[in-house]
Design a protein around this nucleic acid. Structure first.
Lengths: 394, 394
DNA sequence: GCTCTTTTTGCATACGCATGCAAAAATTTT
DNA sequence: AAAATTTTTGCATGCGTATGCAAAAAGAGC
């Protein structure tokens, strides 16, 4: 077994020899005449490593088990298990023996077996519908890191409208200990299905009163109000709104707060269109709103992702200047909003805070084995940039 | 057991009552006076669902097993297993009985147990260092979808430089059947570590000659050449380069191809700086290159992500016009490159093709149980937009 | 030294499922 | 109708680990 491994490694070394620079030069030269090459030949000759039942010389090598370690360390399998279980009762002496043997064999506990026996998979499912709105990749990254730090892993599930049921089945088959549904447009019956099984579900950036699932949102209503006030105080008179997906709670709340905010200043919305939270929809909505005469002089686009599209249409197609002719504000404060090409005034919903709330809700419910509906609302903050005319006195 | 569930559900319904509109209005009103509220009280009273060892009335309810289904259907456990194993030998009659019982109990096969016994976890690890460069979220999304379609799931691992070893341990503990390392800056010894265990590893967007891991890249050398030619033919005379991470293969190849391309037209690079594939590094590099007199009239930035930052500095801080004063080209063709605020001329490395290659390499090696180094190179295509002066005759 | 308490250890079992094997049932052939 | 063949079924076992339990070992106190 050890010998086998050595052979394998020597093979790798043999074929991999040659320093980087030379290899690179070769590759450059090789491509000088033939510009494109699909599935190009590997620079180094392929290295074959046959595994599996070659039955030559007896046992197939496979990952060492706790039993193997036990045998080598001359202790029981339980001792090995306890060595790798924090808080279990092992003497320092046997622990050392076990660790030594484990190192020698390259032993790693099998997380799946552990999950089975202990009923704790340490897996959290993350359901996402799309990752092109930059808000979600960032959430995914932060959530994944936070959970990793707590000893959990993220199992990723991409959903498509229509196929969501099957995805939920898969999630449950994998015995995940919690579910984060991060998409504004996921069917809420899914959350109920999950909750039926007793695993905690967090609707991320979404709130459904009738659902048993917990939720984490920013204060979308307040965010909408802040934007309304900002635009009104900026002296705008024809203020429009471009909605996201109309059946999403984020859109409803942002819109409700926005309208409320307008009303508080004695105004109403000048025009409204629906962008569906996607790029093309937003562009179409912008064309619709701004090609009539009496066009709006300001527009709140329900999220940043759409706002970029709207700004492209306004400047590129309709020759309008931002913010001189039209003010544009968005929602989310994704990184691109700070890029100078857009410099978008927007509402920051702190992904950091939202992640922390999510993790804390999940872990609490997992550990206490109590699924309790919680709704965390993190504050919204107005981020003023240059895409909208500012109030005089601020 | 069934009764319990009913109770739980009724509780949910009771608290969740009230149509959306009313709830919304309430929430709006509730916030009129107190603008911000952290961890706000949930709109609906919390719903408690106690699970677990209440020991009242005997058994705890837990997920039904194949044994439970077998008992109800009056067949053996094997029959249940075979019903859920495609291609196994079951008569239509018993299959029906089993399915009926399964439906009745809400049975779902336990993927972890299945993985243990069959040795096939159907889990693929995806290692990523960061998701702020939009190229990677897109890859993650597409890869995840593609694998899902093949019956696999993606287990996500975020790595930080320094903590990578621990992450690899975790990956291996979860018995993943394959690993995709999607980051230009991952230590290559990790790939070797994985390969030692006999599971296929694909370096995504990275190539390491000395590593046993397979790789999928775009033709970075050719891409660099194409850009060089494009800039030269565009009449630029002082062409600069801003590198990414210097130890990454993407940067080396892009740079090598670019220099080669310049050389083919009798030119050499005018200036060079290092941006490290991150936003701030790129900005600093731009300031460095463009604040001396005799500033470049064109710059190739090693990826789009950095290019956006460079463009912001050029236009925002240095008051240069693009492309009139400076031409900028990037690499990757991330979605933002098409946004009108940047409209970046770049090289498209087709994530679609790269994903397909990745999946095909992985699945082939998983199924045949043979780990063989393969290096797929997908073609690079020049995408001409407006951020760089174009050649006269094209 | 001996008893009493605390810690350590190994045994045995269970987690939920897949699968080889042989018996049973169904089907085909003679 | 009996024999030969094919299909279906159940039994038993094992995947790799965690853990309750009782036996063994190690300390503590006298």
């Amino acid at each position: 077994m050890k010998v086998d491994l050595q052979i394998v490694r020597r093979e790798f070394c043999d074929t991999g020899i040659g320093n980087w620079g030379q290899t690179l030069a070769e590759r450059v030269r090789a491509r000088e005449r033939e510009p494109f090459r699909n599935e190009g030949t590997p620079t180094a000759p392929p290295v074959d490593v046959r595994l599996e039942n070659s039955d030559i010389g007896g046992m197939n090598k496979s990952a060492p088990t706790s039993g193997d370690v036990a045998k080598l360390a001359k202790v029981s399998q339980s001792a090995v298990s306890r060595t790798f279980t924090p808080g279990a009762s092992v003497s320092a002496e046997t622990r050392e023996k076990v660790l030594k043997a484990a190192r020698e064999l390259g032993y790693r506990p099998n997380a799946l077996a552990r999950a089975m026996i202990s009923g704790r998979s340490r897996l959290i499912a993350m359901m996402v519908a799309y990752l092109d709105n930059q808000f979600y990749p960032i959430v995914l990254e932060k959530l994944s890191r936070a959970l990793q730090d707590q000893g959990y892993q993220v199992l990723l599930f991409m959903t498509e409208t229509g196929k969501q049921d099957r995805v939920v089945q898969r999630i449950l088959e994998y015995q995940v200990e919690g579910v984060v549904m991060a998409s504004a447009t996921l069917s809420s019956t899914l959350a109920r299905e999950c909750a039926k099984t007793g695993i905690p579900v967090v609707l991320f950036n979404r709130y459904v009163p009738s659902s048993p699932a917990s939720s984490v949102t920013s204060d979308n209503i307040e965010g909408g109000r802040l934007l309304a006030r900002f635009l009104v105080e900026g002296g705008h008179e024809r203020i429009a709104f471009i909605a996201g997906a109309e059946d999403s709670s984020t859109n409803r709340d942002r819109e409700a707060g926005f309208f409320k905010g307008l009303a508080e200043h004695g105004m109403t919305v000048w025009a409204r269109a629906v962008g569906g939270y996607n790029f093309e929809g937003a562009a179409a909505a912008a064309r619709e709103l701004f090609s009539r005469k009496d066009r709006p002089d300001a527009v709140f686009v329900a999220n940043d992702h759409m706002a970029f599209s709207v700004m492209d249409v306004l400047r590129g197609e309709l020759d309008l200047r931002i913010p001189e002719d039209v003010s544009v504000v968005g929602y989310d404060d994704v990184p691109e909003a700070a890029w100078k090409g857009y410099d978008l005034t927007t509402i920051s919903q702190s992904s950091q805070n939202m992640i922390e709330a999510t993790v804390s809700i999940l872990l609490e419910q997992i550990e206490k084995r109590v699924v309790k509906k919680r709704a965390a609302v993190v504050p919204s903050e107005l981020i003023v940039r240059s895409s909208a005319r500012k109030p005089k006195n601020s």
